[in-house]
Design a protein around this nucleic acid. Structure first.
Lengths: 119, 119
DNA sequence: CGGCATCCTGAACGATACTG
DNA sequence: CAGTATCGTTCAGGATGCCG
């Protein structure tokens, strides 16, 4: 598998590249929430359990930079922002869906303990 | 999305759970090599560029523990081991294929630079 | 050949406080 | 409301050396 360079970083395979774009703890959960509707910053924070404000902010910025989401700022008082998926972001949803269903399958197999509600 | 517990660790969503099982830098590349054939330790190490011995060893152990691969030891001199996919591991290949193709697609879009051969 | 033990670094992530 | 700034911690992963 060839090596690739993007933004000065070396990737050893396509999987690694994909995971750097939509992987990590928070990117898929964020994209997943935006499936189907625009959301405000505070909505996302309320909707995604355990995410810190710093992580939300950082990840949103990266997702925007990589073209998965758009950010629209309304210059009102108080300020208002809206995050939405781009076409690229919607394409990612298809992949996330596959991974997500696989995760559910694995959980079922593993007899993983359910703890609390919240999705 | 509910929280889950597995092996004493808390997961916030199915995606995170799946990624903990087959994610990280090396697990998918390893599983991918085992698609279709058994491989020895040294074969894997030669075949996967840049992986250190420690990472290969650690990841193989985790993959075995989680039921994705089997390890067969031949008590010969010198020692010989063979790693192979289980049914669970083969199921993972389907998911990896999707992610991998998505990665290739992303690379193409991104005009990512090709560096060297070697897959 | 097929590993394990040890030490170490850097990036990811978290907590807290502050601001336009 | 929607963030930024700063500081502290954790941990994946790398480097090196040794062993059955």
């Amino acid at each position: 598998m060839p090596d690739f360079i993007y933004n000065g970083k070396i990737y050893y395979n396509p999987v690694e590249f994909a995971m750097d774009q939509i992987g990590g703890t928070w990117k898929m959960p964020i994209l997943w929430r935006l499936k189907g509707r625009k959301m405000r910053y505070s909505e996302l924070q309320k909707d995604i359990p355990h995410i810190t404000q710093k992580m939300l902010s950082t990840q949103l910025k990266e997702l925007e930079k990589n073209g998965f989401i758009t950010k629209k700022v309304f210059p009102t008082v108080p300020p208002k922002t809206e995050y939405a998926l781009t076409a690229k972001g919607k394409r990612a949803i298809a992949v996330i869906t596959v991974i997500r269903e696989y995760g559910l399958e694995l959980m079922k197999e593993s007899g993983t303990t359910h703890r609390s509600a919240g999705e």
